[in-house]
């Protein structure tokens, strides 16, 4: 195993190191760069606690090698906190606080980045779209209720109205993942 030099832009700052090819991006961020917000909660690409943006798209950094991120740009939750590093001005983190979208905080950095990625791709979200969009992120504390609200708020939606609409919409009740062919309307 020979070391490989990588250069990865993390939260707008260029970082470089010589790494083992097997080094996971999550560990690169935590150990080599020293950004500890990104957590690792499983070893099967299931929980999403390690979610970061890679060139603007959400990925699970436990299932990306640091060498695969060479020459690319990574954004972690720390990257949403502004120059000072303590700003809550970002709409996603602000909404998580306002809606009590976190408890123990372990899933939070990944959840925040998954929401940021989701909104970047399509801000026109309803409750069902948020829930399905977060299918790759597990939380044990919140029951997701307030995370979903936070995502809706961050996307500029009224969470009360969105939740009421979902509760009233019988058609959307078919279990997610059950059918992409029949239950989700045109184009699904």
């Amino acid at each position: 195993m020979t070391g490989v030099k990588v250069e990865i832009t993390v939260n707008g700052r260029s970082t470089t190191d010589e790494v083992e090819p097997r080094l996971l991006l999550a560990h690169y961020l935590r150990e080599n760069v020293g950004l500890k917000a990104t957590n690792i909660g499983c070893d099967t690409t299931s929980c999403g606690a390690c979610t970061v943006l890679l060139d603007g798209e959400s990925v699970k950094s436990c299932t990306v090698l640091a060498v695969q991120a060479d020459q690319l740009a990574v954004t972690t939750m720390e990257g949403l906190a502004g120059e000072s590093g303590d700003s809550l001005d970002h709409p996603v983190t602000a909404a998580f606080r306002q809606e009590h979208g976190l408890q123990c905080g372990f899933c939070t950095p990944g959840m925040v980045m998954a929401v940021a990625g989701l909104i970047a791709e399509n801000p026109d979200l309803d409750e069902r779209a948020v829930r399905e969009g977060l299918e790759g992120n597990l939380c044990r504390c919140t029951g997701y209720h307030n995370i979903v609200r936070a995502a809706l708020v961050a996307a500029g939606k009224d969470p009360d109205a969105a939740q009421a609409a979902e509760a009233e919409s019988d058609a959307a009740r078919t279990a997610p993942g059950f059918s992409a062919g029949s239950s989700e309307g045109a184009g699904a």
Partner: peptide
Amino acid sequence: LAAEVPLLPAVARTVGDPQVRHR
């Protein structure tokens, strides 16, 4: 694909989760 083979986008959308689908 949406126009020519609409099955494929629909199937792709059910693979894993958004993060998995980005990779």
